[in-house]
């Protein structure tokens, strides 16, 4: 009996988490090492070790290297990893909740909604006293949630079963509408707002340790909430009627997941702009490896999303070096292909 239990358990054994973490740390180290200036992996290790634990481990590393690592690349890579993990866990949750493998912040238009909120708050100078950065973030969160309600409400009005086609179509129309409004706002706001490509394609260049801390806090809280709803997400992914029958509190779970996802997407967008398709690509690839059970899929998508986005960011930095691509261009390039693959398969299947 014991053996049977351990071979077919629903959750990962702890050793799997060690492997995931090791993989993520290794990829992060590679991403810090590579770039316009190549730094040996060994030096990256030494500098980070000394920065964290003190001592004199990095004595023989040139000063330029350690300042590139500590002030430029490390905060950026940490922010990229946390954003990737957040977006991907959001995508996974929405795909479970809506029983729709094409649901994601970018395909539903939630990310565009969030960036409109952020742009509006900057353009009109909406801030909260004593918390200079939080106005943008809160507007992004509110707009993310508002867009989600609007899109799902409208889709529901059009088609009770919330089918893939309806949701995606409504999401795309909404995104285009929001982008046009955003372009107008940015045009008239002039210098106050960053360039339009930041909001439509995203960038985490120049992110700080402060950004990383905000992302970490948001991910710690929201990620925990989502991970604790793994069983409920399984029930939704099997079917809402079935979920009701087995005793899931449909309304409470739905609103909890939607609010949590909005908060997390809002925070990510206010820091890194719209980075599309991350929440679509990672769950799709991981589902083939771990199966659809959210008790495995959610933790896997945290690490998978971090690794995926770190690699995309690396590609954005080195592909046409010394110039840099917007990170969203890389993720959308991969994402659009995966989108077509999923759509084609689901059409053929049904």
């Amino acid at each position: 009996m014991k053996i049977e239990k351990s071979t077919h358990r629903e959750t990962f054994p702890w050793i799997a988490y060690v492997v995931f973490l090791a993989a993520a740390v290794f990829v992060a180290a590679v991403c810090v090492a590579l770039g316009s200036v190549q730094i040996p992996l060994k030096d990256v290790g030494k500098v980070v070790w000394q920065a964290v634990f003190g001592g004199t481990a990095a004595q023989d590393v040139p000063n330029t290297f350690s300042s590139i690592i500590l002030t430029v690349r490390l905060p950026r890579v940490i922010c990229v990893a946390l954003t990737g993990a957040s977006l991907s866990v959001c995508g996974t949750s929405m795909q479970g909740l809506l029983k729709n493998a094409l649901a994601d912040g970018s395909t539903l238009g939630v990310s565009s909604g969030a960036s409109l909120g952020a742009v509006l708050s900057i353009a009109f100078g909406i801030t909260i006293p004593s918390l200079p950065f939080s106005g943008t973030m809160i507007m992004a969160i509110l707009f993310a949630f508002g867009s989600l309600l609007l899109i799902l409400g409208l889709s529901y009005k059009l088609d009770n079963s919330l089918s893939t086609n309806t949701i995606i179509l409504v999401g795309i129309i909404f995104s285009m509408f929001v982008s046009s409004v955003m372009t107008l706002v940015i045009y008239f706001a002039g210098d106050k707002v960053r360039h339009i490509t930041f909001w439509t394609m995203g960038s985490l260049a120049g992110s700080s340790y402060q950004n990383a801390l905000v992302l970490l806090c948001a991910l710690a809280v929201c990620g925990t909430v989502l991970l604790l709803h793994a069983r409920e997400l399984n029930a939704f992914a099997i079917g809402e009627d079935n979920a009701r029958s087995i005793g899931v509190n449909i309304r409470r779970v739905r609103i909890t997941v939607l609010v949590t996802v909005s908060v997390l997407i809002g925070v990510c967008v206010s820091i890194g702009g719209t980075i599309g398709f991350v929440g679509l690509v990672t769950p799709h690839i991981l589902r083939m490896l771990t199966g659809p059970n959210h008790r495995r899929l959610l933790p896997a998508s945290l690490f998978g999303g971090a690794i995926f986005l770190m690699l995309c960011d690396l590609a954005a930095r080195v592909l046409i070096s010394p110039l840099e691509l917007p990170i969203g261009a890389v993720t959308s390039f991969i994402g659009a292909i995966v989108f077509v693959v999923i759509f084609y398969r689901s059409r053929k299947g049904s």
Binding site: E10, N234, A237, N293
Partner: peptide, 9 residues
């Protein structure tokens, strides 16, 4: 059912 869940799950 939307995804490849097993009978036992």
């Amino acid at each position: 059912v939307g995804y490849e869940f097993t009978v036992q799950e």
